[in-house]
Simulated scan of single mutants.
Amino acid sequence: MAIKLEMLRVFRVVAEQGTLAAGARLLGRTPSAISMTLAQIEDEIGAPLFETDRKSRLTPLGQLVLEESRRATDIFDRSAEAIRRHAISTAGIVRIAAVPSATVSLLPAVIEAFQTAHSDVRIEISDVDSVAVRRRVQRDEADIGIISARPDDPSEGELIRCDDLGIVCAEGGPVHAAHLAEGGRSGWGLLALERLIANPLCHLIDDPDVHALLAASTLEARNTTAILSFVRRGLGASILPFDAVRSQPEGVEFFVPSHPVGRRELRRIRQKSDRPGAQVEAFWDLLRRPFPTL
């Protein structure tokens, strides 16, 4: 009997749960049926996968089979989900993974233009940081990615737009007051007057004050809306691009320190070997059009 995907799924569940009974409950099957499936896998492989009958400890071979089982079942599940999504939208689907600031400032206008010509195409947006964007594109979990990058590192992706990075703080708070007192010629060191709300964009600023504050930060957020909410609440100050705060909520101030100037680029990425459909290609092309920001 050849090894089947469902066998690998059963083995994975039991191995991850640690006991035969727990695996059986999760799978909704009897322990005897699960035990028979595991025995079939071991017979096919020709070696034991568990060190004890309790299924609580894997053999070295079992650990390797677990890794392969995870890989195989994850790939199948992603493919099955993609098929289900395509069945919902017969005109096709475009999957976008983008950094939060791009979701706020760039994508609304792009989506509006895209839907004018492709109203029946399904669009899925993932709001994640640049590291997760790259990972989703590499794993074929997204057709197009939008990342934040430093202008001095043009090794990845194609430029969409560039904007200033600056300090976002509460109106009337210590950072804002110090900025006004200095007549607008402020440095990044003003962030030391409040708690730094860390986010991945902070790492794009090459300044020793920012580096030290990042190392000491005890609060981190990756969603633009959450960061602005925390700032407005008085929980600290942070670093965001101008596009993300162009339409600032009441009670929030934004300014660009005069030294050193921090810039952020938005870039589009996709798999080089990918052969995108017409819908994905159309969305990809729209990302370079000069849409107004929100």
Rank of each mutant, 00 (worst) to 15 (best):
R136D: 04
E182W: 07
D163Y: 15
R139Y: 09
G183Y: 13
S258N: 09
I111E: 04
F291L: 01
F50H: 03
L286Y: 08
F242W: 07
P249W: 00
R135H: 14
D127A: 06
G145A: 05
A113M: 06
V65M: 01
H176K: 03
I34K: 01
E112T: 12
S229Q: 10
C169E: 03
T218L: 11
R134D: 07
V110A: 05
H203C: 08
Q279A: 10
F50D: 00
S126V: 07
R232F: 12
R263N: 09
R267E: 04
V128W: 01
V137E: 00
R84G: 15
E67T: 13
G62F: 00
R95Q: 06
H259G: 13
S119G: 13
R134G: 14
C169I: 05
I93V: 08
V231W: 05
P260T: 01
V99Y: 08
D285E: 09
T218Q: 10
A82M: 10
E156S: 07
P151T: 00
L64K: 08
V131D: 11
T116V: 14
I205T: 01
D43R: 11
R78D: 13
I123Q: 04
L193E: 05
I269M: 05
H118V: 08
H259Y: 15
G62D: 00
A198T: 09
E124A: 09
F76M: 07
I269V: 15
V65F: 06
R233P: 15
L180P: 15
A21G: 15
H179I: 02
R135D: 07
I239T: 03
P48H: 00
V14H: 01
G46P: 09
P108Q: 00
G184W: 10
I144L: 06
M7R: 07
P290S: 00
C169D: 03
A192K: 04
F242M: 06
Q115S: 10
R9C: 12
E156F: 08
D143R: 03
R139G: 11
Q40I: 14
L240D: 00
A22H: 03
G187E: 00
G234N: 05
T30F: 13
E194T: 11
K4N: 13
H203E: 10
A15K: 01
A244G: 08
R9A: 06
K272I: 11
F114L: 02
Q40Y: 13
L165W: 01
A226N: 15
L106F: 15
R57A: 11
R29E: 14
D209M: 08
E156V: 14
L214P: 12
D77I: 06
L106V: 15
E156A: 10
V99G: 08
L58F: 05
R122S: 14
